[in-house]
C-alpha cells in the first residue's frame, strides 16, 4: 500500500507541486538556495516560462495524480517579463479557484502567489506555510485518481 493511502499513519507527508515562472519566482527559488534558506522538501518545483503559461489543466492533473497542494508562483503584477502574462493568470486562476471550490474541492489546496527574483525569503516562507497548511488539511482524497494509485504503487 502506498504511503498516501495509508494517510492515518504518522509518517504521512504531503506532496506540493509548485509551478514557478522562470523570470521571477523560479529565480526567487534560486535565491532562497543561494542564501541557504530552508523550506520543506515536500515542495517540488516545475519551471514554466511565465505564470501566463499555466493551464488550469496542469493543476487538475497534479491533483488527479495525488498532489496534496498546488502553488503557482509568478512575477508581481506589473513586473511580468512578458508584460502581461501574470495579468492573464491572475484572472484565469482566480476564476479557476472558485470553480474548484464550486466543485466541492478544498480551494485552500490551490494557491497563487507573486514572488520576485529578489524575494528568496518570501519564496521559502510561502513554500513553508503552504506545506504546513496542507499538513493540517490532510491528504487530497477527493480528486486523487485511485486507478493511477494502483498503477504507481506497483512501480
Amino acid at each position: 500500500m502506498s504511503a498516501a493511502l495509508n494517510e492515518t499513519a504518522a509518517g504521512w507527508e504531503p506532496l506540493i507541486v509548485s509551478f514557478c515562472c522562470n523570470w521571477c519566482s523560479y529565480a526567487g527559488g534560486d535565491l532562497a538556495g543561494t542564501s541557504r534558506m530552508s523550506y520543506p522538501a515536500n515542495v517540488k518545483v516545475i519551471r514554466v516560462p511565465c505564470s501566463g503559461r499555466m493551464n488550469p489543466l496542469f493543476v487538475l492533473r497534479a491533483f488527479q495524480r495525488g498532489a496534496d497542494g498546488v502553488l503557482v508562483a509568478g512575477c508581481h503584477p506589473g513586473d511580468c517579463h512578458y508584460t502581461s502574462g501574470n495579468y492573464q493568470s491572475r484572472r484565469r486562476l482566480s476564476a479557476f479557484k472558485r470553480l474548484v471550490e464550486f466543485a466541492g474541492f478544498e480551494p485552500e489546496r490551490f494557491e497563487v502567489r507573486w514572488i520576485s527574483s529578489s524575494e528568496g525569503d518570501k519564496f521559502a516562507e510561502e513554500m513553508t506555510s503552504m506545506t504546513e497548511k496542507i499538513k493540517a488539511l490532510g491528504p487530497n482524497r477527493k480528486m486523487r485518481d485511485a486507478r493511477w494509485q494502483s498503477v504507481t504503487s506497483k512501480v
Partner: peptide, 21 residues
Amino acid sequence: NLKGFSNDQIMAEVDAICLQR
C-alpha cells in the same frame, strides 16, 4: 503549443513528480 514547454511535457513532469504517490 509552446515548443520546449508543451502541454505534454509539463503533464509528463507532473506525472513523474507525483509518481511517489
